[in-house]
Computed example of a mutant assay.
Amino acid sequence: MSKRRHDPHRRDRIVEACLEVIAREGVGGTSHRKVAAVADVPLGSMTYHFTGMDHLLREALTRFGKEVSDRFEERMTKARNREEAVREVVALITEDVLADHRDLVITHELYTLAARDPSYRDITVDWMRRSRAALERHFDPLTARMLDALIEGLTIHSALDTVPKDRAEVVEAVERVTARASKAGGPATVSG
């Protein structure tokens, strides 16, 4: 009788490998076999840890959404005032969202999946709720919603555009969205 290999982090490796495969192949190209190969686990581990591909995709995409939301909340918590919050939104867009092609691809794969299969919308709805709550630390609810839409729109444009977004363009966009809201709470400007 062979001794079972102790591998306490196998499940986490499988989830991370799933995200890597999604980034490379898309949701449609993700399979148990490909994920197992990237995770360097036996194919049988897939069904041991997950009831099926839907279960694995949900867990991987939920983890991804939570990680992105955590980074977002960290940035907004760090800001002590509205001016710093505007700077953090710009940094979030230019340093976190637009700088990581892998995350851009996974984000769009999640959006497409949620658009096609409403059962995945709970992941995107939770992500948007957390993003807006973080923004509402410094901005009114309407401005927070508009900023969230701006961030999402810039990610779509960045993923599809052949010309990278310039930081000055991002600064201008964020300042325009927050301009009216800023008047009520004091100035909020960012230098490029």
Rank of each mutant, 00 (worst) to 15 (best):
Y111L: 12
L61Y: 05
D126M: 10
R121K: 06
S31H: 09
S45A: 14
V90G: 11
D103N: 14
A114C: 08
E74D: 14
F50L: 15
V97F: 13
E109I: 03
G52M: 11
A37S: 09
E109F: 06
H108I: 00
V86M: 02
A36I: 06
H55G: 11
A36L: 03
V125Q: 03
V27F: 07
D54N: 01
G26M: 02
E109V: 04
L56N: 04
L98A: 14
R129H: 11
A115I: 01
T62Q: 07
E84V: 06
H101F: 12
L92Y: 13
T62W: 07
V27R: 03
G65T: 03
S69R: 06
R80D: 08
A115Q: 04
D40F: 06
V125P: 00
L43C: 00
V21L: 08
T77G: 09
D100H: 13
T94C: 14
D103T: 05
A91F: 08
I93H: 12
A60W: 00
P42H: 12
T30H: 05
S45L: 04
R87K: 12
R33T: 03
D126S: 14
M128A: 09
M128G: 06
V27I: 15
T62M: 10
D117E: 08
T47F: 12
T112Q: 08
G44L: 08
A91E: 07
R116Y: 06
T77V: 08
L57P: 01
E20Q: 14
R75A: 12
A37Q: 09
K66A: 09
P42D: 06
V125D: 05
L57E: 00
V35C: 06
A115S: 04
A39F: 03
T94S: 11
K34F: 02
E20Y: 09
L104V: 02
W127V: 01
R102T: 02
A91L: 11
F72H: 12
V27G: 08
R116L: 11
T51L: 15
E59S: 14
M53G: 15
K66M: 01
S69P: 01
R75L: 10
I22S: 05
T47S: 14
M76A: 10
R102Q: 01
E95N: 14
E73Q: 11
G65D: 01
R82Y: 01
T124K: 03
K66H: 07
E88H: 13
A114M: 09
L98R: 07
P42E: 04
V38Y: 01
P42M: 02
V21T: 09
Y111E: 04
D40I: 10
V125L: 06
